[in-house]
Each structure stands twice: as C-alpha cells, then as structure tokens.
Design a protein around this nucleic acid. Structure first.
Lengths: 131, 131
DNA sequence: CTACACCCTGTAGCAACTACAGGGTCAAGC
DNA sequence: GCTTGACCCTGTAGTTGCTACAGGGTGTAG
C-alpha cells in the first residue's frame, strides 16, 4: 500500500508517517520504481500500535520502549507494566494540577462584577500585590 | 534594578525575561552605560502580571490580550471575562480528556497478569485488532 | 590584579508534529 | 496525445514556551 492509504487506514497524516520513519519509529519500507514508499501489513500493524499508544498519551520515547519490548516476546511483562504505571502517575499529577487551576480560575471569574477594567477583579487578581 | 534582580523577584529565569522582551510582552527597559538592562517598578508590576497569568495557565497570546485590555482602564470588563471563560472551558476539556484516558489506562494496566510479553494484555491492547 | 558573579548577543535545542516550496508520477477524460 | 488533478518525493521552516549554550564584556571583593 502507498503512504496515503497507510495514513488513512490509521487516521494519521502522511507527513506524520514520514516523520515516524525519520525518527526511526517506523522502519523504512520498500520503494516502487517511481520511488514511492510501499508498505505491507507489518507496517500497518506497527503504525497502529504507535497510534494507539499515542492515543493513550504515551510519549514517543515511551512508545519506542514499548515497541522494543513487544518485539521480544519471551521477555517478562514487568517492564511494560512499569512504563504504563509511570505514565498513569503522570496523568494523575496532571489531572490534579488542572483541577487546582480550575478551582482558582473559577474563583477569579466568579469575582467579576462586569464593570470597567479599572475595577475588574480578574485584572486586579493578576495585578501587583501589596506584599 | 538589574535583570537578575527582576528575575529573582518574580521567580523567573533571566533568559525568560529577555525572551518576553524579544516577543514584545515586556517593553525594552533603559540601559546603563555598560549596556545592562535597568528596570523600574512598572516593569516589575508587568512581569508579575505575566507570571501570575501564566501560573493560571493562560497562553502567552492570551496574556498579551489581557495586558492590552488592562492598559485601557475605561474599557468594559467583558472581554477580560470572555478570555478567562474560554480558558476555563479549555481546562475543563483537558480534565475530561485526561480523566477518560486515566480510566482507559487503568483498565489496561489492571489486565496485566505479569507473564511474558507474548501474552501481555497491555501489549495486546496496543497490538493489531481483528477489524 | 585576578577571580568570580553577573551581564550582553545570538543561535540552537526540546516535543511532536504541521506546513510549505518545488519538484516528479500516474490514471482518467477530451 | 495532452492536460488536469490527485497523489507522491525531499528538504526546510514554523509552532509553543521556554532553556542552554558559546563567546564575549563588566563590576567588585580580596
């Protein structure tokens, strides 16, 4: 299959597929006589794997590790589990940060009395403080 | 005050202060005879504003708008309120996305039986699907 | 007078793509 | 046979918000 077909089969942009090849996530495929990339089902499987891992929020570096691990079927699953757990912790941290932020921002917005900027509580909150 | 003093007074790195000047968020200050930047209290106030807005998660583009609005004290507070509300919506969306992700990832991790990679449920989840 | 901390400019790097510019290829329709 | 349009190629520059040099100059304490 050509790059456009592979891309649409995996909901990826063509440029992104080439990018994954350039950074070594996706092995370079064979070429046609016209120098077009010719992909097989192994490429499709690998790119699907990458996309699903990305959708779960794994970084490209984590995806690279997961791919390496998944290539050696005899290895223990522990390393895979570890990567996933680290990622879960990061997500929890982000959710916590965003929730705290949300509370603070909500408080700021709630104080807005819709007057002029001169006595806008939002601007005031951001402005200089007397300490 | 010199750039290092301004930076530490606002918990900002020196490079970041220069960066804000370069992108036009912070006006260029006067210079000493040795070509050192010399800041006044107005710069301190403005940089504090920027930092607090950034801490609330506003993008630099949003900060730029907030600064412009806060400069015209006679204007209505509505635009400010609007920017803040848009930002709040974005935060809510992000929290929602991350929470969904968290659930999914937790499910994936929970299915791990700690065997070999060959029958790792995590890898399996990421691998090719029969559709 | 010599360390050392600070300041200057300018450029390159990070993640993870995205968007051109400037070309080549191929199938369909007139 | 020739044009149109959709696709493909490479390579480079842009995005956000900084951060980290490299290679210099300045100011002060001992």
């Amino acid at each position: 299959m050509k790059i456009g077909e592979l891309a649409s089969a995996t909901a990826t942009k063509v440029e992104t597929v080439r990018y994954y090849e350039k950074i070594g996530l996706l092995p370079p495929p064979a070429r046609t006589s016209a120098n077009y990339r010719a992909y097989g089902s192994d490429h499709l499987a690998r790119l699907s794997f990458i996309r699903r891992a990305r959708d779960l929020g794994f970084s490209l570096e984590a995806v690279r590790e997961l791919l390496t691990l998944s290539d050696d079927k005899t290895q223990s699953c522990e390393a895979v589990d570890g990567i996933a757990r680290i990622h879960l912790n990061e997500i929890d941290r982000k959710i916590g940060d965003l929730t705290a932020l949300r509370t603070e921002l909500d408080r700021v917005i709630g104080s807005c009395r819709h007057g002029t900027v001169a006595d806008c509580k939002i601007i005031e909150t951001l402005g200089p403080r007397p300490n």
